[in-house]
Nucleic acid binder design. Structure first.
Lengths: 315, 315
DNA sequence: TCACATATGCTCGTTTTGAGTATATATAGG
DNA sequence: CCTATATATACTCAAAACGAGCATATGTGA
């Protein structure tokens, strides 16, 4: 079987491509899943694929019958202790974030759009702090910290929890999606952490579990997207061709999981010249008719000239 | 996940780990290389490795005898047409950015630190715009754009060049390192682009070439680092334990490739409470003695609470 | 016609930047 | 010792960006 001590090992590696495919529909963030919502679309990288991205496109479009638009790489990992099966085969997982618009056409069998807050109920702060956070999650985190063997460990655990979940006067930071999930995993509060021990009961406050480490990948994708909407005009990949400013705002809020100040949001969008009026307006919103806008495609090029935070010198 | 007839193909994939190991020494950005500066430290990911990161650590510390400090993943790719050899074996390259301090101890055989501007001479704007940029690079880019078959292609090429290289009134954006390199590659101006055609002469204005796509990976690392120093205190990974504010500034300038405004830089560092005084000062700088500072380790935790750019609402 | 809902315009005080000017304290050379 | 020359550090000032909120416009439906 093995050719040589070294090269034989190299060959028994498989690469898997995984997609976090996101859309926003009527103000809710959606993620494409397969297998009753338990997995993200994925498939092996094969010799026939031109590149990693094209391999991903093949798999996802085949599994879900939904085209991928914008794609960006998320993360690659191969931790041995995080995979479900105990096989000797080593798998490198390469994950991508893909943005699209949800189509009216039904996706393929077993493929389905899901609200991403089904998996992360503690991440949606649009209607205020979710009650399960102070009522269920924080007490469990406290118990976990208190269960530490020594004082330094206790303090470290509690400090990380406080920062990640915005406790002890630390404000809520919507970008820390991955840190929060990892903390809950470390504290054995999410379903995935129990799997290897056999048991499987988890409180609904900790969300739906997924296969293998797919929920971790989803957390990575959400975190990346929440960070990115702040400095790159990626929301537009998720919007229809024309939209009102409130619809745009609702989409951003859906992704960020928090409400934004309407007037200031509009000022921001206008001063950055991200959109242009179409001339028409809609009355569907109930209330004074809203102007319809479209994305100014010019900014895709211009915005490459992003902002700096270094106090540059003139000379 | 899925086991099927195609699974036989999955096994002929190898994973390679590649490091962009960076240090800053007396105001110059340095990158660790092997093989006379033509390659980055790298090695195959094997079954024995606990994780991708630990595999990388093994390889790099073995090849260079230099310990790795801070590590973050850069990018994974597997483009078929970019690899040097024509073998059927498919390689997935997983690259990392690592930050450290250059040690006085000599690195291992064949391993050597290099100034990264040897590979990207057009990226160093600390002494003003490098003359080779207007004199050599821009004319070649213009010729490349003019050589397009049709008008749209010409305009697209020129617009991309103008944005990437700060022409036509577009300011210089130090973060676009990768875009610039990719453009030069596409225009067949860098050495790597000629390799498959056999010839190999390139003007020194286009920098030293590297093996395979290592220079592209280096460009990715520089771009990431230039972006990151603006919102995360990573420079300190590259600084000695105590330093003056000017030394800190020089390090930032080395990485960014541009000068910063001294007074405003200090204001920024102070108001963010990144450093604290050690109490002593040094006169080595020639001039009024400078206070010595050290990094405030507390910020590593606090800074997790990063800034937002969304106009949040209070309710 | 009125209550209600959303849209949109505008104000105002606070912070954060960008760009300097001014002053302090060393060393090196005559 | 004095001076030129570095660098270090403190302050100023106007412009731009941000956070919060008030006011007004213009629809729909009871």
């Amino acid at each position: 079987m093995r050719q040589s001590a070294e090269s034989g090992q190299r060959h028994s590696i498989a690469a898997e491509l995984i997609a976090v495919l996101v859309a926003v529909t009527i103000g809710q963030p959606r993620v494409m899943t397969i297998e009753r919502g338990q997995s993200l679309p994925s498939g092996p990288f094969e010799l026939g694929h031109r590149s990693l991205q094209s391999g991903l496109r093949d798999w996802v479009e085949h599994q879900t019958r939904h085209p991928l638009g914008y794609i960006e790489q998320l993360y690659t990992f191969a931790d041995r202790d995080r995979t479900a099966n105990g096989s000797a085969q080593r798998v490198v997982s390469i994950s991508y974030l893909a943005l699209t618009r949800e189509e009216q056409a039904a996706p393929a069998d077993k493929a389905a759009w899901r609200n991403w807050y089904d998996y992360f109920p503690w991440e949606d702060h649009r209607a205020g702090v979710p009650p399960a956070l102070p009522d269920v999650i924080v007490p469990h985190l406290k118990a976990w910290a208190d269960g530490a063997d020594d004082r330094p460990t206790h303090d470290d655990r509690w400090q990380r929890a406080a920062i990640a979940f915005g406790l002890d006067g630390n404000g809520w930071n919507e970008e820390l999606v991955l840190q929060r999930y990892e903390l809950l995993y470390e504290a054995a509060l999410v379903g995935e952490a129990h799997r290897r021990q056999g048991e499987n009961r988890t409180l609904s406050a900790f969300g739906l579990a997924m296969a293998a480490d797919h929920r971790r990948i989803l957390a990575t994708g959400i975190a990346r997207l929440r960070a990115k909407i702040k400095y790159r005009p990626v929301v537009f990949e998720l919007m229809p061709s024309v939209f009102t400013l409130l619809q745009l705002q609702r989409s951003v809020e859906a992704l960020a999981g928090r409400l934004v100040h309407k007037q200031n949001f509009r000022r921001l969008v206008e001063q950055q010249e991200l959109v242009e009026e179409t001339g028409s307006s809609t009355t569907d919103t109930g209330g004074r008719p809203a102007k319809l806008f479209r994305f100014r495609h010019g900014v895709l090029a211009e915005r490459a000239v992003a902002g700096t935070k270094l106090p540059l010198s003139r000379a």
